[in-house]
Computed example of a mutant assay.
Amino acid sequence: MKKPLAIALVLMTPLLGVTANAHASGSYLSDTQVNTVMAALPAPSAPGSAEDLADRAATDRAFAERSAADFNQAKQEDDFDAFAFAPVIGVDFRAEKLPHVAALFKEAETETKDAVDLSKNHWKRPRPCPPASACALHPEKAAKKSFGYPSGHASRAAVDAILLAQLFPQDADALMQHARDIGWRRVVKGVHTLQDIYAGREFGQALAIDMLASPAMQHDLAAAREELRAAGLAPKSP
């Protein structure tokens, strides 16, 4: 079966070599890379347009038809990191056991959040507000939330999945699906539209591919692989 483009790019990236375009501080993305990824993101639907209204109506339906299990899981994922992918990788994939892995993902997630915040504040797309949702019941709290486009959760989940696939290539499909599920549950929770989620996935994929071109990232991935081997968590040879 032919692999989806995103997964194929993930698995071939180490073969492309690295470029010296990361900051000297050891971060994974340069300002130029972030700006380029932001510029490639299409504009969201015009406010009040038929497309915009349909997008928001889809969130209203997903929220109204939510299952208790999905909604509870969505609430648990309000704060998540790469170790939320342990159901795919295994119960021993824990931050306290893997400090090098934890540091790599903390840096990647911080840089992703910074890039997402820049893009959100550029587009300023209001979040959805389904009837009877927390937004509708507590508008004063909703007013303090960030804008909706692109979704930060979808972006960070995509980055995490792509980077984790470098460490666990045999789980690439399941990791990407787990990332998609995290994004979808933001719609179920009523805090994002599908358009926000799709944009976040594309944004996160582009950021992750740029991160993998960073010498700092490649250095940290090598350290992470060694740590996983020492912990007995490295992928088994075929």
Results as ranks from 00 to 15, higher is better:
A20F: 13
A115D: 11
V187C: 04
V88Y: 00
F63K: 03
R229M: 07
D55L: 09
K113P: 07
E107L: 15
K106W: 03
V18H: 09
A216Y: 09
A6Q: 12
A115Q: 12
I89A: 00
S27H: 14
A172S: 12
E109I: 03
L228V: 10
L212S: 08
K3W: 06
W184I: 02
R94I: 07
N121I: 06
A216Q: 08
P42G: 10
V88I: 03
L5C: 12
S214Q: 01
S30W: 04
L41E: 15
K189G: 06
K124S: 05
Y198R: 14
F147V: 01
P235G: 11
L29H: 10
A222R: 12
T32M: 11
E227Y: 09
R56Q: 08
Q170P: 13
N21L: 15
E111G: 08
C129N: 03
A143Y: 12
A74E: 02
P126A: 13
L41I: 14
L207I: 08
V34L: 09
T193D: 07
G200L: 08
R180S: 13
A165P: 11
P169K: 07
D181E: 12
S27F: 09
F80G: 04
S133A: 05
I7L: 05
L53I: 15
Q76Y: 04
L104H: 02
T13P: 11
D92S: 14
S214T: 01
K75D: 06
I162H: 04
G183R: 01
E140I: 09
D114E: 14
A95L: 05
G200K: 12
S155W: 05
L16I: 11
A206K: 10
A54V: 09
A134G: 14
L233P: 14
V116K: 07
G90W: 00
D210A: 06
K124Y: 05
L137K: 15
L137A: 15
C129P: 01
A62V: 09
D79Q: 15
L16T: 14
M217Y: 12
F83P: 00
N35Q: 15
G90T: 00
S155K: 12
K75A: 11
L53Y: 08
S214K: 01
P87S: 00
S155Y: 07
Y198S: 13
V10A: 13
R201I: 01
L194V: 06
A95M: 13
S237W: 04
R225F: 10
M12P: 14
A68R: 09
Q205I: 06
E51A: 15
P235Q: 04
D78Y: 08
D160P: 05
I182G: 00
H153R: 06
N72V: 03
V18I: 13
I197A: 02
F85N: 00
R125W: 05
P169L: 02
V10C: 10
V187R: 12
E51M: 15
D60S: 13
K113W: 08
A74K: 01
A68L: 09
P4E: 14
I89V: 02
L164N: 01
D220H: 07
N21F: 13
A224E: 02
E226W: 01
A172G: 11
V88A: 00
L98N: 05
V191F: 06
E109C: 05
K141P: 11
Q76E: 10
K106P: 02
F71Y: 11
A57R: 04
E51K: 15
I162A: 04
T36H: 13
N72F: 02
K145D: 10
E96T: 13
K2G: 09
A206Y: 03
M38W: 07
L9S: 15
F203D: 08
L194K: 08
